[in-house]
Nucleic acid binder design. Structure first.
Lengths: 337, 337
DNA sequence: CGTAATCTCGAAAACGTTTTCATGACGTGG
DNA sequence: CCACGTCATGAAAACGTTTTCGAGATTACG
């Protein structure tokens, strides 16, 4: 037995149009037919076929989320916020990960295009070409943490520059001079901004060349661990380390703990993002709070608003402020150098 | 300009059937027409409408994943494994989270049913009724960590019982006697099994009543923190704590660190799951390794295999073995009581 | 009481594909 | 040279909905 609208109509002794009208409440239907239809729907266990619906209505009820990777806490949080908001609006989420290279990204976009009504893109590595490709698709797009180079999409960023600048300034104010930085991926927009914030603050303190204090990383715990080890070997040793994100900072904490180096007594460590793990790290991690979940939700809200708008909306460009969160992993510098 | 197969056919001067044949390579088409079609496809920027395709072919190309929550590292890892496998097979993933209660779960299933070709369900709180509801849907279902009460679905479990049993036995072998356990959610199948494993090992060591050593938790860091504090106040204090999962254990480590209690010297702490954070905790966390990512991928593989099978396949019931991973957070008991 | 307006509802078109069926061209074997 | 199979191709059906259109019934009003 197939669960189609025809079957329901047959059982209720009405036309399929009537069934549709009862279900969608578009037009009043006489009470007895309405009742018969509802009974038949129950008996058959009918639910409308979404494919048929979207074919006709040109909307799918789905929203796509493009991420580099779902395993990191940052993205997981973002996803959670997005999912919560999506459920609230009755949309479902279609996720697509691991787009470190352009080809898979384009392929994903193509595949997603007609399957969803809108797209949230959180791929800091994205370049102008990709962005343009995105923008010329059919669906509205919200980009998170992408460079501000096109105005065909909505953007939600947070203040990566100011976050690290504040963090660096805070450490400087606490007497630190040799502050190392572990960078994020070179191609990532947000990582670049964080780097610039660091340099700006260091220059403000009279350190114009920071090249000896900057280290390559890639936002992973693993990177924090290995680079942390390298930093330890330096002479003179830095008195503070700023990691490009919390995951990386946790890797640093891990290697310091293994070497028996006290944090923050001997060295201060700071992260970025304030993922949930930051406040459960040992010691608890000084970081820059980013309302990750809220941003995920905001992206979805933006999309839905745009989809429901009757008239074209101007593209917005929102920047979330960030906040310094000082915890146990940083302290005034004790170095008398 | 609409990007339909008609438009392509019109430009190429052929029928829509020919376009379809060229694209799907079902039947040979003369070389010149083939070329014209391909050019027209490019010119129009045509991609087939998935809704129309699935309406006809009765398959959507999507796979659904039901999770309680995407923010935890465990689920994030699972999702990553699933996503990787799905991409390999050309399926996309549709995720649905936060199904702590039955109603939203049913609603999600209904909504997902015709949108996907198969379902991965990781909801340890699921009960028999829900499971039956799932099984009678149209799509094949793979359940992860659910009770073994129906055989209408595929199941992938891992050995929750044996994992905690081994962990407990290991601590006992290291001289620990007062071993506390922080439970998982009461309704969760896996948490229940872990509890049983603990009790079995304790009974094996002659401790028949463990009620004074068991504490309620809910798999969160927060729970680990608060319950950890409670355990600290006990007299005599337990010499080891097994948390129902790593997240909870990390919460315990956090509170111990705050109270200045040395791990593992004064107290041993162990977790379960071996999430990536476990090896970056300070100290690194003794845990039970579960191949989370592999399990996520395996679930997808199972679904795809079933979908592609020509003939009905028997339902399988796979149990992954788990492995004790001893790290720094546990040590022989120094208590001379 | 007649006509116009309102209301309920069914028939049918439309959405964009894939696939079946039919047709005409062509080559081949007897 | 004719019949027959093979081959490329187009016309049309089908998938399951929503929505338009029109018809018939009912109400409202003069």
């Amino acid at each position: 037995m197939d669960r189609t609208i025809r079957e329901v109509a047959r059982r209720a002794g009405v036309s399929i149009a009537t069934v549709s009208r009862v279900l969608n409440k578009t037009v009043p239907v006489s009470e007895d037919k309405r009742k018969r239809v509802l009974e038949a729907v129950d008996a058959v266990g009918y639910t409308p076929n979404p494919a048929a619906q979207s074919l006709l209505k040109k909307e799918t009820g789905g929203l796509g989320v493009l991420l580099p990777y779902a395993g990191e806490e940052f993205f997981a949080e973002l996803l959670t916020g997005a999912d919560l908001a999506a459920q609230e609006y009755g949309y479902y989420l279609l996720i697509c990960t691991s787009h470190r290279d352009d080809k898979t990204l384009q392929a994903s976009i193509r595949g997603l295009d007609k399957r969803v009504d809108g797209l949230v893109v959180m791929v800091p590595e994205i370049n102008a070409k990709e962005l343009a490709y995105l923008a010329k698709g059919e669906d509205p797009v919200v980009c998170i943490n992408t460079p501000l180079s096109t105005d065909a999409v909505d953007r939600i960023n947070f203040d990566n520059f100011e976050g690290v600048r504040k963090m660096t300034a805070y450490l400087i104010a606490n007497g630190h001079e040799r502050i190392a930085l572990i960078r994020g991926p070179e191609r990532a927009h947000d990582a670049q901004k964080r780097l610039e914030g660091y340099r700006a603050a260091m220059q403000g303190a009279g350190v114009s060349d920071t090249s000896m204090l900057e280290f390559n990383g890639d936002y992973t715990k693993q990177a924090g661990y290995t680079v942390g080890e390298k930093i330890l070997a330096l002479d003179p040793r830095p008195t503070a380390i700023i990691a490009a994100n919390d995951y990386c900072a946790i890797g640093v904490l891990s290697v310091l703990h293994e070497h028996g180096i006290a944090v923050p007594e001997e060295i201060s460590v700071a992260g970025f993002d304030d993922v949930p793990s930051a406040q459960y790290a040992a010691p608890t991690l000084t970081s820059v709070r980013v309302p990750i979940r809220e941003i995920g939700a905001a992206a979805i809200r933006r999309l839905v608003t745009r989809l429901r708008a009757k008239h074209p909306m101007p593209h917005e460009d929102q920047v979330y402020p960030v906040e310094l969160v000082v915890r146990q992993s940083t302290a005034p510098c004790k170095d008398e150098a």
